Computed example of a mutant assay.
Amino acid sequence: MSTRWKPNVTVAAIIEREGRFMLVEEHTSEGLRLNNPAGHLDCGETPEQACAREALEETAHGFTPTALVGVYLSRVPRAATGEDITYLRFAFSGEMGPLDTQRPLDDGIVRTLWMTPEEVRSSAARHRSPLVLRCIEDHLAGQRFPLSLIHADVESMP
């Protein structure tokens, strides 16, 4: 019997303030990498709920998604682990809330950084995936879709 292929569904918060973007520096199997605040969709969550949760866990800031920047499909072979993973990412722009100074950052997150678009571009070799820059470039280009584009049948969710 063959195994059914399933992409990993992820969400990302594209957070901009005064021309700078918030990234997280995190430990990965490939070493210290930069990423948008991002993570996996959990059972029972809508993509918007997952994005708000992941942003809070990784940055200690509340985040309210206000628009969908895009939906991205990316295959990422991981040399260090031999894994070949496909990600389906929902990236959101939105409003950042205040910092919760009592909240620790998620395991593996070293710190948050505010970077200019040029700093993000020049650090591409340190990005966790090519989607980090692509989502920021789409945000800078003004790409926004209404949240109503995503329909979640919440009545059928646990």
Rank of each mutant, 00 (worst) to 15 (best):
134 R>D: 02
51 C>V: 10
137 E>I: 07
12 A>C: 03
138 D>C: 03
155 E>K: 13
32 L>M: 13
16 E>C: 11
90 F>C: 08
34 L>I: 05
1 M>Q: 06
25 E>P: 05
95 E>W: 04
96 M>W: 02
61 H>L: 02
30 E>G: 12
118 E>Q: 14
132 V>T: 15
130 P>H: 03
78 R>V: 14
10 T>Y: 08
25 E>C: 08
99 L>V: 03
85 I>T: 11
98 P>G: 11
93 S>D: 11
10 T>G: 14
115 M>K: 10
23 L>N: 06
53 R>W: 08
69 V>M: 07
114 W>F: 10
7 P>V: 09
79 A>N: 06
24 V>D: 09
32 L>G: 05
139 H>A: 14
74 S>F: 10
35 N>F: 05
119 E>M: 12
40 H>P: 03
33 R>Y: 00
23 L>V: 11
110 V>Q: 12
85 I>E: 14
88 L>F: 06
70 G>A: 06
81 T>A: 08
125 A>K: 15
116 T>Y: 08
84 D>E: 14
21 F>H: 11
40 H>F: 12
88 L>C: 07
18 E>F: 11
93 S>P: 00
28 T>I: 01
108 G>Q: 00
9 V>W: 10
79 A>E: 10
54 E>K: 14
25 E>M: 12
25 E>K: 13
54 E>M: 14
47 P>F: 08
101 T>A: 15
25 E>Q: 15
66 T>F: 06
85 I>G: 04
75 R>G: 07
72 Y>N: 03
111 R>V: 04
52 A>G: 04
7 P>L: 08
71 V>I: 14
58 E>S: 13
119 E>R: 04
113 L>H: 14
93 S>V: 06
84 D>A: 09
19 G>E: 03
21 F>P: 07
125 A>G: 03
75 R>C: 02
80 A>F: 04
122 S>G: 01
14 I>E: 05
108 G>S: 04
94 G>W: 02
75 R>W: 04
38 A>P: 00
136 I>H: 06
55 A>T: 14
99 L>Q: 07
15 I>N: 01
6 K>Y: 12
148 S>Y: 00
157 M>L: 15
26 E>K: 15
140 L>Y: 03
108 G>A: 02
35 N>Q: 09
18 E>C: 11
53 R>H: 02
154 V>F: 08
91 A>C: 03
78 R>D: 06
18 E>G: 10
115 M>A: 08
94 G>F: 09
13 A>F: 03
74 S>K: 06
76 V>G: 01
156 S>H: 12
137 E>A: 09
24 V>N: 10
7 P>S: 15
120 V>K: 08
79 A>Q: 12
126 R>W: 06
97 G>S: 00
36 N>H: 07
3 T>G: 11
56 L>R: 14
73 L>M: 11
145 F>W: 10
140 L>W: 03
85 I>S: 05
49 Q>A: 15
2 S>F: 12
156 S>E: 10
58 E>V: 10
27 H>Q: 13
93 S>A: 14
134 R>P: 02
